[in-house]
Design a protein around this nucleic acid. Sequence first.
DNA 1: TTCGCTCTAGAGCGAACGTTCTAGCATCGT
DNA 2: ACGATGCTAGAACGTTCGCTCTAGAGCGAA
Lengths: 193, 193
Amino acid sequence: MGTVERITTAMAELMRRQGYAATGIAELARAAGVPNGSVYHHFRGGKRDVAARALRESGAAYGQLLPTLLEPYDDLATGIEAAFAEAGRTMAESGWMAMCPVATVTAEIADVEPELRAVGADVMTGWVEGGAAFLRGRGLGDDDAREVVHAVLAALEGAFVVARGLRSREPLDAAGRALGAWVATLPVGVPAP
Amino acid sequence: MGTVERITTAMAELMRRQGYAATGIAELARAAGVPNGSVYHHFRGGKRDVAARALRESGAAYGQLLPTLLEPYDDLATGIEAAFAEAGRTMAESGWMAMCPVATVTAEIADVEPELRAVGADVMTGWVEGGAAFLRGRGLGDDDAREVVHAVLAALEGAFVVARGLRSREPLDAAGRALGAWVATLPVGVPAP
DNA sequence: TTCGCTCTAGAGCGAACGTTCTAGCATCGT
DNA sequence: ACGATGCTAGAACGTTCGCTCTAGAGCGAA
């Protein structure tokens, strides 16, 4: 694993655990196992630069998570419910910190670090477009696909936050059941190519 | 308005805008219009103490928000949809920063400031219990009431984060329509006393 | 007036922050 | 063999951090 990659993955991990502001360069370098100065050699723009790259990379990974979780289920509604339940299991196993770094950082710095907010918006837009394409492939209409993605994304990120605070799976389970039941009522046409 | 109150409201405002870690005591004192030392005179426990009080106070205020928004609507489902839409309007007007400080801070510091996480959990538990009682009063069964509160809370907090990042009402509108449609399918009995 | 107390006011503390700088090591093509 | 280059390594810079400390303003009680 290259040095750059070690730095960005360490940054993503630290950011999802404690956010952007509380993560220092020295701490990052220690976590990545590189000297302080190497961070600035590879990331000319300093801390903000590292955070932006880390958000983009981990954002891309998270974007593939939902389609992957839904893939095995023929029925979209039960798939969504199962995906939320799986997220709850993962979170409990990780000691309630397996949250998405994009949401953590966006909530924290949206009004103070415009460049990072823009990166987060980019990543989220990618999720929405990718997710909508996936759902259209499952037979949903254009508008419904977009609406489902936004509702699922919001519920998932929010349930992460509440579950993390309460240290309970209940928010994730409840949100999953609610959205599953709702999606089950939507009309499904012939799957698009 | 007393000094203590000025400090806690300023802290809540700063935390929802930029989180806990990025908010300094000097900045807080300036925003509250009090000298640096006064903060420590009134809050022996320092920054953490201020944050805890600010979270409890603004948390109580937010807890009354949803019942207040739902009150005018006879039908719960349309009330929920309208409440999400109203939240979206408020957020757009505020320049996309009218988020809930409890969610922002919980996401940011859950694993690093155990005391503040516990405060956030306390506040959220109050929301869930208060919200469930309200919904039982609207005729929902015990289990359904709890499930609806958790789903609505998760969707609302998550939609705030995504809307803030994207600077768009779409997440809030989509989440509101989804949850409204789902709640409309739940059985409603005779309103409890 | 004078004491006692609360709170204001801000200077000052050591530590940690993001960043820059210089020195040294390794691996090239020539 | 050799300078050039890419990267490591960490000391050091000025600033800002959370917090403590001291000095005094304000005010009711005696």
